[in-house]
């Protein structure tokens, strides 16, 4: 009996073993370790010292930069995700119907997404929005006087939102695939009934695309919370100017690897995990109210 059990399960577990090992050593173990560290003071020189909830207490009651980091990150997510998705959906819908040569456009629109994570692009972005950068020169053509977008704390975050928007390529591709899945005859029927285009969009496209929108929304939200490299480079690794680019991840990185406050940084890490977990959970729990999957209906 036991022999049979082993014989039946062995191949599966053997093939799974690299992942299993990785899961325990690189995911579960570190997450738990990080939970433990979050209750300690740890500078990597002496051993971790248990401090109870002190880190969390400090974080929520006294640490202004923590709140600033939350504000910056949430503002960014709230702006960047809708901006990117609306851009992606609009372009996808333009590409979806009536055009024969979409391949080239698709490639052009996707390229920034692929390059976007690279340091080169972050460096480029910094220069584009400089006082004498390209953006201001374009504005000057229209007689508008530009700002030092990056070094002005009021505008620096928007440069990153625009960077996010510029990288709408992959949600666009997913939307395109989703639009392809909507049967043409639904639109033809609506056309014959004389349904106006706008109602076709709200009554056919949106509901049928809901699962794809949901998927993109969850994915992009998680991704946006994780944004690091571009903010790090553009803010010179500090969150400057005036902490206006103090993304949560940047703050965490600095606490951990600049000031070696590993315990406190672990507490920050857990807050980030809980935030992302909560967003994902909310998305999934509410999804049944607004996402209708095709096969659920009949």
């Amino acid at each position: 009996m036991i022999k049979r059990f082993i014989a039946r399960n062995a191949p599966g577990y053997i093939f799974l073993s690299p992942w299993l090992l990785g899961f325990f050593l690189l995911a579960l173990g570190p997450i738990l370790a990080s939970l433990y560290l979050s209750f300690t003071k740890y500078d990597m020189v002496s051993d971790p010292r248990w401090v109870g909830f002190a880190n969390y207490e400090y974080m929520f009651t006294r640490d202004r930069r923590f709140w600033k980091a939350l504000e910056v990150t949430f503002t960014y997510v709230a702006l960047a995700v809708p901006a990117r998705l609306i851009m992606a959906l609009s372009v996808a819908m333009l590409l979806d119907k009536g055009l024969r040569t979409i391949g080239l456009y698709r490639a052009i629109f996707y390229l920034p997404s692929l390059l976007g994570a690279s340091i080169a692009i972050a460096i480029l972005w910094r220069q584009l929005f400089e006082q004498n950068g390209v953006v201001n020169q374009v504005l000057a053509v229209f007689g508008i006087e530009g700002l030092a977008w990056i070094t002005n704390p009021d505008t620096s975050l928007y440069t990153l939102v625009i960077l996010a928007m510029w990288q709408f390529g992959s949600p666009m591709l997913i939307f395109l695939a989703g639009l392809r899945g909507i049967p043409r005859d639904l639109y033809e029927a609506a056309e014959i009934d004389g349904t106006p285009k706008w109602r076709q969009f709200t009554r056919i496209t949106l509901p049928l695309l809901a699962p794809v929108i949901f998927f993109n929304l969850v994915l992009q939200t998680i991704e946006s919370f994780k944004t690091f490299s571009s903010a790090f480079i553009i803010s010179n690794g500090t969150g400057a100017p005036a902490d206006s680019l103090l993304f949560f991840t940047v703050y965490l990185f600095n606490e951990a690897f600049k000031f070696f406050r590993m315990g406190y940084a672990s507490a920050l890490a857990w807050v980030l995990l809980l935030i992302i977990g909560a967003f994902t959970a909310i998305a999934f729990l509410t999804s049944k109210y607004w996402v209708h999957y095709e096969n659920e209906r009949d």
Partner: peptide
Amino acid sequence: PYHVVLIP
């Protein structure tokens, strides 16, 4: 997020 497992 990678940041969560990074420190340990």
